[in-house]
Simulated assay, not measured.
Amino acid sequence: MKKYSVSDSKLISQYKNGNEEAFELLLTRHKSRIFTSIYLIVKDQYIAEDLLQETFIKVVNTIKNGKYNEEGKFLPWVMRIAHNLSIDHFRKAKRYPTIVMEDGTNVFNTLEFSEESFETQQIRKETHKKLRNLIKELPATQKEVLIMRHYMQMSFQEIADATGVSINTALGRMRYALINLRKKMHKYNIAYDQNIYPK
């Protein structure tokens, strides 16, 4: 039990000096909390386990390359890495969500691609690509809540828990994300009414 009184910073110093056991202790100390934060986002045990492993590989590489400088803030730093990897996982999945604007209209009509003509599929894919690029341009906090809500189908309570803010803040960020997205779509003339798709 005495080992638990050793600070994270001390353990990192020991690990830098070649003490592998020090890192094992850090891992044991924080693993369940980090896993929970990932699982809250991805809601899949196997994906969460993979991302946990990826998180610690990134942590090890950063420390071994001498790039770690978050003295005394090890856990928040690791949580941030885990959080970013979880969000990236969904970006790479290239899902096609239905995004509902703040006035209730849908960005996309969610017919399966297989039911559409090749031309319509291409138009839809191209529009989704443009939309993803516009989402990338949103402020980080707005982009995050939009991805969690529409790509990951998380409730606002889950988003609030995962990002450490109140439900009202999460709702506010979502509202501004949609308003900003609508402005960008209007600026680039991207239709979100299914009837406006070119034939």
Rank of each mutant, 00 (worst) to 15 (best):
V145R: 09
Y197D: 15
K73S: 13
V6T: 14
G72V: 02
K16Q: 15
N69L: 13
K43C: 01
V60I: 15
L146E: 02
F90W: 00
I63Y: 13
L11M: 09
L75G: 10
T141Q: 11
Q53Y: 05
M148I: 07
L52C: 05
Y46L: 00
G66C: 13
S155M: 03
V6P: 04
A48P: 15
S114A: 06
K31F: 07
I81D: 15
Y151R: 00
R182T: 09
A162K: 00
I34M: 07
N19W: 01
Q53P: 04
L111E: 10
P97T: 02
E119I: 04
K143L: 04
T169V: 12
T120C: 04
N189E: 14
Q53V: 08
R29Q: 11
E158C: 02
S166F: 00
K64Q: 14
I147D: 02
R95G: 12
T169A: 06
K64F: 04
T62S: 09
Y39M: 02
G72P: 05
I190D: 07
H89A: 03
A82H: 11
K187P: 08
F113R: 02
Y192W: 13
N180W: 05
R132A: 09
I57C: 12
E126Y: 05
F113N: 11
I159D: 04
L51S: 10
D193S: 13
V59E: 05
V165A: 00
K16T: 14
E71V: 09
H150D: 14
T55N: 10
I57K: 03
K143N: 06
I87L: 15
K73G: 12
I87R: 02
V42M: 02
V100G: 06
L181Q: 08
E144A: 01
N69V: 15
K3M: 07
V145F: 12
K94F: 08
W77F: 12
Q121D: 07
M174S: 14
N109C: 14
F156L: 08
A22M: 07
A177G: 03
E49F: 03
A170K: 00
K130V: 08
N195E: 15
E137N: 08
K199S: 15
Q153P: 00
K183Q: 13
G172W: 01
T62Q: 09
L27K: 05
N133T: 06
F74V: 01
K125T: 10
K92A: 05
H89M: 01
T36N: 15
E71T: 11
F23G: 03
H83C: 03
K130R: 04
I47N: 10
K58M: 08
R132V: 02
S13L: 06
A140E: 14
I99D: 02
